[in-house]
Design a protein around this nucleic acid. Structure first.
Lengths: 219, 219
DNA sequence: TAGATTGTTAATCGATTAACAATC
DNA sequence: TAGATTGTTAATCGATTAACAATC
């Protein structure tokens, strides 16, 4: 059983950024771009760009470069943005509401189709035209509406349990904003957004810089 | 001029997760932990844990392991969580309000001290007891209140310009939620949270899994 | 002391960069 | 055709893992 060569998550992680820059180039009306040109804008090596893209096939042409429009479409396709993914949000607090209201996701084919909260006071409240439902209705909703993605915007205390429940009811992917590691079966995709981890990294870098400067000043 | 060995961002990126697991161990009342034990919980290698920690000094003891309480404090210190950092939020939309309301940041020494929006309709609205101010007051506020960090929760169109303005007024670090790369001078720290990039990665992995399964089914 | 487990060096693996032949 | 620039192989660099001597 021959395996396709697995593409590293490091490469995948760079694709959205390529897409963003190609979108900008498109808006500027540029028809073609060389890896050299793109590398200068993005501050990465041209070599890396060529290597990354060649994981998925030869999108360029020698002596010409890459067609912006075409490459944009190809990367979109690779990322699965040519399909529609329905998502629901679990947790209608500030963060859940913010994510529901984010219109840009829609443009990429991510359809906000439901939002749930265990707090009965929130039931019926509307987030971008969609009524908050009680958690009890989640199960039925997932099955009736062909939902792919669940956005987990609840406190860590209940996140693990809710995630299990989501998986049991056929969710394929979880975008996890709870500050805990989920344990899901093989084949269920999880993408973590640990905001406080990100803030701590920022904190480290602030302090590192201060300390380096203090040392320099002492010499 | 002898340089300290620079610690890689890969290592820094793992520290918050260590801290989280150590916090859990503390809550469970565990006094000590070996790299082996911790590695099983965290699903990383014991070797990586020991290497990572030894970048910052020897926190363990042969034959004993690591003291949970002590290691927790040391990692906190390394991450700069023993200091207080004041932050302001630029943009009082859904996301800005969600971030302002997030109490857990406070626990880590991040103090929410101001929020600004150019939309005059939002002026005076309160987010966790703090009044939204017009953008014009931002400059003075930063200087009067010893603000370290600015959280950028505005659309990409104005983000680059606002970031420059923040830097001019003495901000040391930007936590950037706008979907654009900022260009800041050396010494200013930027941590990007590109939510739509994260969602695209999830999308890729969903589709990859579907395609792999389709192929298997065909054989 | 004997056993356990770190700190650290060495080996491996994977990712990035450089170089250049292929080709438009 | 000559020039440009890709696709791809080879070289380098850095990160992870393995191994083990040091030591509590």
């Amino acid at each position: 059983m021959m395996e396709e060569k697995e593409i590293s998550q490091a490469v995948i992680g760079r694709l959205p950024r390529y897409l963003r820059y190609l979108g900008d180039l498109k808006d500027e009306g540029m028809e073609r771009v060389s890896s050299q040109e793109l590398s200068e804008r993005m501050k990465v090596t041209a070599s890396q760009i060529r290597q990354d893209l060649n994981n998925f096939g030869g999108f360029g042409q020698q002596g010409y470069g890459y067609n912006v429009e075409y490459l944009y479409r190809e990367i979109s396709r690779i990322l699965g943005l040519d399909r529609t993914h329905r998502f629901i949000i679990i947790g209608a607090g500030n963060l859940g509401q913010a994510l529901g209201g984010y219109l840009n996701f829609e443009r990429r084919g991510f359809l906000f189709s439901g939002i749930f909260d265990k707090n009965p006071e929130l039931t019926g409240k509307e987030v971008r035209g969609i009524r908050v439902q009680p958690m009890e209705e989640m199960e039925q909703f997932i099955r009736d509406n062909d939902v792919d993605i669940a956005v987990l915007a609840i406190p860590k205390a209940s996140a693990v349990e809710v995630a299990e429940h989501l998986v049991q009811n056929g969710i394929k992917a979880i975008w996890n904003f709870a500050h805990v590691d989920l344990n899901v079966p093989e084949g269920i995709q999880v993408e973590n957004v640990h905001l406080s981890d990100s803030l701590m990294k920022l904190s480290y870098n602030i302090n590192r810089y201060l300390q380096e400067n203090r040392k320099s000043a002492e010499l």
